[in-house]
Simulated scan of single mutants.
Amino acid sequence: MIVAPARSNRKQITGNAALFYVAWQLSRRGWHVMPTIRNARGSDLFVANGDETVFFGVQSKGQSAKDDIKVATVREGNVIDHVMSDWWIITNEPSSDQPTCYILTKVEVAERAKRDRDGQCWIKLTHCHEFKNAWDRIGMAPTF
């Protein structure tokens, strides 16, 4: 019998499901993927090709069926200064049988982030259709 997680654990489980779904998708494309320490500032995944000539960081965000996602808390300055990873992959409903991922560069995240009165920056996924399941943007790992 499967028991639903306690309310306090749902957010963490959603984040973990998103992280490992993204790692699986990148691994399928020939990339070597290493998760970093959770809840640390910066990338959630470090990614490299087989001979380690190409490297990039991925920020993974997971959510359960929302239209927007929090990007950063920015009290002063530009959003781009607070967006660290090369790629951002936002996974909607990662625990479902068919999660949806939005694949954006850090520049695209910063360009689309809207700041609220509290300094929280959000991206509205309904405005990101061109990034929906766009794994070809990252592509297959190059081999030399």
Rank of each mutant, 00 (worst) to 15 (best):
M1N: 05
I2N: 10
I2Y: 15
A4I: 15
P5E: 00
N9T: 14
N9R: 15
Q12C: 13
I13P: 01
T14A: 07
N16V: 08
A18M: 10
A23W: 12
W24V: 12
W24N: 04
Q25H: 12
Q25V: 08
L26D: 12
L26T: 04
R28I: 07
G30P: 00
H32G: 00
H32Q: 14
V33F: 01
V33I: 09
M34Q: 15
M34W: 10
I37C: 04
R38P: 01
R38C: 03
N39R: 09
A40I: 02
R41C: 06
R41P: 00
S43A: 05
D44A: 04
F46E: 10
G50F: 09
D51F: 06
D51S: 01
D51T: 12
E52K: 12
T53K: 09
T53Q: 09
T53E: 09
V54F: 05
F55S: 02
F56R: 05
G57H: 06
V58A: 05
V58I: 07
S60G: 08
K61T: 02
K61H: 07
S64D: 11
S64H: 15
A65Q: 11
A65S: 14
K66F: 12
D68L: 10
I69F: 11
I69L: 05
I69K: 10
K70P: 01
A72E: 02
T73Y: 11
V74H: 13
R75F: 11
R75K: 15
G77C: 01
G77N: 07
V79D: 04
D81Y: 08
D81T: 08
V83R: 00
M84C: 05
S85N: 04
S85Y: 06
D86T: 07
D86P: 02
D86A: 08
W87Y: 09
W87T: 02
I90W: 02
T91K: 12
T91M: 07
E93S: 14
S95T: 13
D97E: 13
Q98Y: 09
T100C: 01
T100I: 15
C101K: 06
Y102V: 08
Y102I: 05
Y102W: 10
L104D: 02
L104H: 00
L104Y: 03
V107P: 01
V107Q: 09
E108V: 03
K114G: 07
K114Q: 15
K114L: 14
K114I: 05
R115F: 06
D116F: 07
G119A: 04
G119L: 11
Q120D: 06
C121Y: 12
W122R: 13
K124E: 11
L125N: 03
T126P: 04
T126D: 09
T126S: 13
C128P: 00
K132D: 00
W135R: 12
R137T: 03
I138Q: 10
I138S: 04
M140W: 08
P142K: 03
T143M: 13
T143I: 13
F144C: 11
